[in-house]
Design a binder for these strands. Structure first.
Length: 222
DNA sequence: GCGACAG
DNA sequence: ATCTTGTCGC
């Protein structure tokens, strides 16, 4: 079955990506006015032997925290750029299953289509859950892009192999931009608009910030 | 062969 | 990812 997680080998992981990538929905447009949005993130122990995942549900308009869930586990796969999703997905899915509500939209740390095989964590999570998802990465995995202008909202296309795979978006004036890409059931314009809506004060989305804090707390707690 | 390489 | 708090600068 294609949803095997974790895969036993690198070859198996690549085969799973290959099988699931056909199920990604990039038609969008996705929720324009979601009532809720959830951020997901993972924190590792110093030795990377254990990890804690967190999902934090926010009111999309006010950014108020509505619910939160966590899970601890072990990395399910070696860290290999391009196969990164297999490492965190199991624990992330456990945490998500514990959330007492279904989010209208998911925002993940990392990339979606801005991936060597167009199937980053945001796509993988989207296909597995069926929910609208987009990714906001802090650094580039693949592709080339011009430096966006200095103003908040300035952006440039992230292109790989002649394909538009995402957008480099400035969320804070004069601050290093983020990498936005489609995961599942949403389009790039909508994902970028939501990213700006979620970054009123900081470089990273409020969803990511809340999830980051939550998983660090969960890791410290045990 | 030499870099690059989400978290 | 993690090692790491307060501090210099706009």
């Amino acid at each position: 079955m294609a949803s095997l997680i974790p895969p036993a080998t690198e070859a198996e992981a690549r085969a799973i990506q290959q099988a699931l990538r056909t199920q990604v929905d990039t038609t969008g447009p996705g929720p324009q006015r979601p009532a809720t949005v959830a951020g997901l993130d993972v924190a590792y122990a110093k030795d990377e032997r254990t990890l804690a995942a967190a999902v934090v549900l926010l009111d999309f308009a006010t950014h108020e925290v509505l619910a939160e869930s966590t899970a601890t586990g072990v990395p399910a796969f070696d860290y290999i750029p391009g196969l990164f999703a297999f490492r965190e997905l199991p624990t992330l899915l456990t945490a998500l299953s514990r959330l007492p509500a279904t989010p209208d939209l998911l925002v993940v740390d990392g990339h979606g289509l801005a991936h060597p095989h167009r199937f980053g964590l945001a796509c993988h999570l989207g296909v597995l859950t069926g929910l609208p998802v987009f990714g906001v990465g802090k650094t580039r995995l693949i592709g080339t892009a011009a430096e966006p202008g200095p103003d908040r909202g300035a952006h440039s296309d992230l292109v790989d192999e002649g394909e538009l795979v995402g957008r480099v978006l400035r969320t804070r004036p004069g601050v290093k931009p983020v990498y936005v890409s489609v995961g599942h059931r949403i389009d790039l314009d909508t994902a970028c608009a939501h990213t700006l809506a979620l970054t009123p004060s900081y470089r990273l989305p409020e969803t990511t910030r809340a999830a980051d804090q939550a998983c660090r707390r969960a890791l410290a707690a045990g």
